[in-house]
Computed example of a mutant assay.
Amino acid sequence: MIDVHSWPTPNGHKVHIMLEECGLPYRVHAVDIGAGDQFQPDFLAISPNNRIPAIVDADGPDGAPISLFESGAILLYLAGKTGRFLPADVRGRYRALEWLMFQMGGVGPMLGQAHHFRLYAPEKIGYAIDRYTSEAKRLYGVMDRRIERTGAYLAGDEYTIADIAVFPWLRSWENQGIDWADYPSLKAWFDRIAARPAVQRGVQVLADRRKPVRSAAEKEVLFGQTQYRRR
């Protein structure tokens, strides 16, 4: 049994989707990041960067429990555990890994900044909004051209952890200032992924707990000085 400590965010949904796709048994433990659960000692013991998601697999590689944090590392671990969604051939594997790194280093951080400055920043800073909206559009363009070339998935013909990693971040396309009409190949890819039953189940995990960030206390926990305290 795998214990998943998570919240319904794009990074959380990556792992939820992967677990559903692999058919692995798991238990979900909600980490309410607006309430500050991510700073609790028990969670920090398995996720020292105080970010969701994190997992504890009771049946680790050597039969002993293993904990992991960072969603990309978790996807790689689950792919290795099950032998699924990461190509066996060397070229295919590295193609999937480069697009996984593209998500981890580009799509996640840049779209996250677009969300912050477009929706959550206490003051509207035109420079920041323009910068990160433009970067979001650039990244969508990179992916659109890639899918146009492959005709299927980011790594080629095969659905991989790269697709699983990217998809949840594009579900908030409207908040990122994106018009799907500008990215027809990527939109077709998005619809293809969204139609997968395991993906539909994965994005529903903890979905009833998700709510807009409204209170000053929640904003302080998520965006203020609370997160910078040494622990």
Score class of each variant (00 low, 15 high):
193 I>E: 06
142 V>G: 09
51 R>T: 14
19 L>A: 00
32 D>R: 14
88 A>M: 07
129 I>Y: 05
69 F>T: 03
162 A>K: 00
58 A>G: 10
145 R>M: 05
134 S>C: 10
52 I>P: 03
43 F>L: 08
181 A>D: 15
16 H>V: 03
124 K>H: 12
105 G>M: 11
135 E>P: 05
75 L>N: 01
97 L>A: 05
146 R>S: 11
26 Y>H: 14
53 P>C: 12
125 I>T: 08
86 L>S: 01
162 A>Q: 01
184 P>E: 04
90 V>Y: 10
78 L>F: 11
35 A>I: 03
199 V>Y: 04
194 A>I: 09
89 D>S: 04
82 T>N: 07
147 I>A: 05
54 A>H: 01
194 A>Y: 09
141 G>Y: 08
191 D>N: 06
186 L>E: 06
153 Y>S: 02
15 V>Q: 03
94 Y>G: 02
61 P>E: 00
9 T>C: 11
119 L>H: 14
193 I>N: 06
128 A>I: 09
32 D>T: 09
14 K>C: 14
68 L>Q: 08
95 R>K: 08
59 D>C: 09
82 T>D: 05
20 E>L: 13
193 I>H: 04
91 R>Y: 10
112 G>Y: 06
153 Y>R: 00
107 V>M: 15
44 L>V: 03
48 P>F: 12
179 D>I: 03
56 V>C: 06
88 A>Q: 14
87 P>V: 06
34 G>M: 12
44 L>G: 00
188 A>M: 09
189 W>V: 08
42 D>A: 15
205 V>Y: 02
144 D>V: 10
115 H>M: 15
85 F>I: 03
107 V>W: 07
166 V>G: 01
198 A>I: 08
23 G>I: 04
188 A>V: 11
152 A>T: 09
21 E>N: 10
176 Q>K: 07
118 R>H: 06
220 E>G: 09
62 D>N: 13
210 R>D: 15
38 Q>W: 00
229 R>C: 07
36 G>M: 04
42 D>W: 13
102 F>C: 04
81 K>W: 11
104 M>S: 09
96 A>D: 08
131 R>M: 07
189 W>P: 01
50 N>A: 15
171 R>H: 14
199 V>C: 02
23 G>E: 05
108 G>Y: 05
222 L>Y: 01
220 E>A: 14
85 F>K: 00
166 V>R: 01
31 V>N: 07
162 A>P: 12
